[in-house]
Computed example of a mutant assay.
Amino acid sequence: MFTGIIECTAKVHRLNRNRNNLYITLNNPFLDKEIKINQSICHNGVCLSVMNINQKTYTVIASEETLLCTNLNFLKIKDEINLERGITLHERLNGHIVQGHVDTIATIIKIENKSGSWIFSFKSKKKLDDVVVKKGSIAINGISLTIITCDQHTFNVSILSYTYEKTNLHVMKIGDIVNVEFDILGKYINKTIQKMYNK
């Protein structure tokens, strides 16, 4: 489980395809911190397990199912990826509950510079329905953000300067694809209400 507060970014060092899986090797930014084999780390909002570690890099594997529903299938060498290690029980939950299970992808359709902040607008591949609400939480490439406005297919968020500079949003452009995870609490509430009305 994660919070959507990005610790750092890392660049893709190597990409190897083995059948329908993708092995992703990244420059290791956690050299002075503990990471270990089988540890879960959130990569652009996708929970992946560490398969191999050496002095300067580490490797994770994305399965075919993960590649089909996330933006990891579009990765290139030197692409920048947002990283967050799993939450520990003694930490404050500064963002919101992020599982690392991507619900859909979305395309950036507009970026507005607001002199110290940015408004990013997205068009979702999946219909948003009631799982996305104004002022609700959403994770974009693993970043915990608050929705400004939304409709059935589009939504936008405000990005402060610190978040813009410390995540891969600063290299994003119109047309780029991002991973989207809806708020887990909203998904459970929506499912419960649907069951009530379908009785």
Results as ranks from 00 to 15, higher is better:
L31Y: 10
L31E: 10
K33E: 11
K33N: 13
K33F: 15
E34D: 08
E34W: 14
I35F: 13
K36S: 10
K36E: 04
N38G: 02
N38Q: 09
S40L: 11
G45E: 09
G45S: 13
V46A: 12
C47Y: 04
L48S: 08
S49H: 09
S49T: 14
M51T: 00
M51F: 03
N54W: 03
Q55A: 00
Y58V: 11
Y58I: 05
Y58P: 11
T59N: 06
T59P: 08
T59C: 12
V60I: 15
I61W: 09
I61C: 06
I61H: 00
S63G: 07
E65K: 08
E65T: 05
L67I: 14
L68P: 00
T70N: 00
N71L: 09
L72N: 10
N73D: 04
N73M: 09
F74Y: 08
L75P: 10
I77N: 08
I77C: 10
K78D: 13
K78G: 07
K78H: 11
K78R: 12
K78A: 02
D79L: 09
E80T: 04
N82V: 05
L83F: 10
E84C: 06
E84I: 07
R85F: 01
R85M: 02
G86W: 14
T88Y: 04
T88S: 03
L89C: 04
L89F: 03
H90I: 15
H90E: 14
H90M: 14
H90R: 14
H90W: 15
E91R: 14
E91I: 13
R92D: 12
N94K: 05
N94I: 11
G95Q: 11
G95C: 05
V98W: 04
V98E: 03
G100V: 11
G100H: 00
H101V: 06
V102F: 05
I105P: 07
I105S: 09
I105F: 00
A106N: 01
A106R: 02
A106Q: 00
T107Q: 06
I108G: 05
I109T: 12
I109L: 11
I111D: 13
N113A: 09
K114D: 00
K114P: 06
G116E: 07
G116S: 05
G116N: 06
S117K: 05
W118P: 02
I119L: 05
I119W: 04
S121T: 14
S121C: 15
S121I: 12
S124E: 13
S124F: 12
S124T: 13
K126P: 02
K127D: 15
K127H: 15
L128S: 12
D130W: 13
V131A: 03
V132L: 15
V132W: 15
V133L: 07
K134E: 00
G136E: 02
G136Y: 04
G136N: 05
G136C: 01
G136L: 02
I138H: 07
A139Q: 01
A139W: 07
I140Y: 07
N141A: 06
N141Y: 09
S144N: 02
T146N: 06
I147Q: 09
